[in-house]
């Protein structure tokens, strides 16, 4: 399928999702759906670096929280700025941080790169915790407007719609990369970096593109968070569960194509939301753990890999 017809299908699916959720007739559906969509964006973003180039990023929470905190800063300085622009700013901030960290760490291979991203997350959290302008360790309150600014409905419906649009963009970008020149370069890096370089692939440059894109989308996923939670503190923004979920979802769905992270995010995200409502929120990490173990044993290449056998 050509890229543009694929995007049309995605948009149709998105509309169906939105109106389907509206038919539930309960704003809780939007609250829960928002989280699932947020994970679609995060997992897709993670996979651009982790799945396509093979560099495992443990620092998702940092990119995500930076997006959220850039919105906090904008909310305090330019409260009139429309949320889509704040999202764009969050993307630029996290993308730039991705580029910077990439430059410092991408000469490291494998596990060392992963540990460096984890360290980066700890450093970022420490910085934010000590920055009183954004609330420091105490956290910060952000007032959520009541009404959607663009159509007749709740603000949560607006947030849901934005996250839906972001999902469409992230998935479309990920898929377009797959069979592009960039995608083949990424795959070559993942398989054998030395041979990639010997085949003309500028490996460092491509890895930087991947980290910037990946970090940027994570930042965009985090940018609306302050309006969603209305109270944000560093320990929830930088929560380890973002990093864990974002790695688990592509692994469960399959890292080789755009569909894997989407499937993983929808499956795991929905399960977690259901468990939070029906039993307890503490259960959600347990679900991830159990599912990961099951998949590593039964379908090490994820759901996609299972069907392609």
């Amino acid at each position: 399928m050509r890229n543009w017809s694929f995007v049309s299908v995605l948009v149709l699916v998105a509309f169906a999702t939105f109106f389907g959720t509206k038919m539930v007739g309960n704003s809780y559906a939007f609250f829960a759906g928002y989280v699932v969509l947020q994970y679609v964006v995060l997992a897709t973003a993670w996979n651009i670096l982790g799945g396509y180039t093979g560099y495992v990023n443990f620092g998702t929470a940092a990119f995500f929280a930076l997006g959220a905190y850039s919105t906090v800063v904008l909310h305090k300085t330019l409260p009139e700025l429309p949320l889509p622009l704040m999202i764009a700013v969050g993307g630029v901030v996290s993308g730039a941080v991705g580029l910077g960290t990439g430059y410092l760490t991408l000469r490291l291979r494998g596990t060392f790169f992963s540990i460096a991203t984890l360290a980066m997350a700890v450093v970022m959290q420490t910085l934010i915790t000590n920055w009183s302008f954004v609330g420091g360790a105490r956290g910060v309150y952000v007032i959520r407007p009541d009404e959607s600014p663009i159509f007749d409905g709740d603000y949560i419906e607006y947030l849901f719609l934005l996250m839906l649009a972001l999902s469409v963009i992230a998935v479309a970008v990920a898929r377009a990369i797959e069979h592009s020149r960039l995608g083949y370069g990424f795959a070559a890096i993942r398989d054998d970096e030395l041979a990639a370089e010997a085949s003309g692939v500028p490996t460092l440059r491509l890895k930087l593109i991947a980290t910037a894109l990946s970090g940027g989308f994570m930042g965009m996923a985090g940018a609306p968070l302050p309006y969603y939670v209305t109270y944000l503190d560093p320990s929830s923004g930088f929560s380890l569960s973002y990093a864990v979920n974002t790695i688990a979802m592509p692994l469960i769905g399959g890292t080789s194509s755009w569909l894997g992270p989407v499937l993983g995010a929808v499956l795991l995200g929905t399960l977690q939301q259901a468990a939070t409502v029906t039993i307890s929120s503490a259960l959600s990490l347990l679900i991830v753990g159990v599912l990961l173990v099951v998949f590593v044993i039964v379908a090490p290449k994820g759901i996609i890999g299972w069907f392609r056998r």
Binding site: Y184, G185, A188, R190, D192, V201, P202
Partner: peptide
């Protein structure tokens, strides 16, 4: 490149 087909293996240097 282990995850790429033979044709795709050659595609990398052709493209890059």
């Amino acid at each position: 490149f282990a995850s790429l087909t033979l044709a795709e293996n050659l595609r990398v240097p052709i493209l890059y």
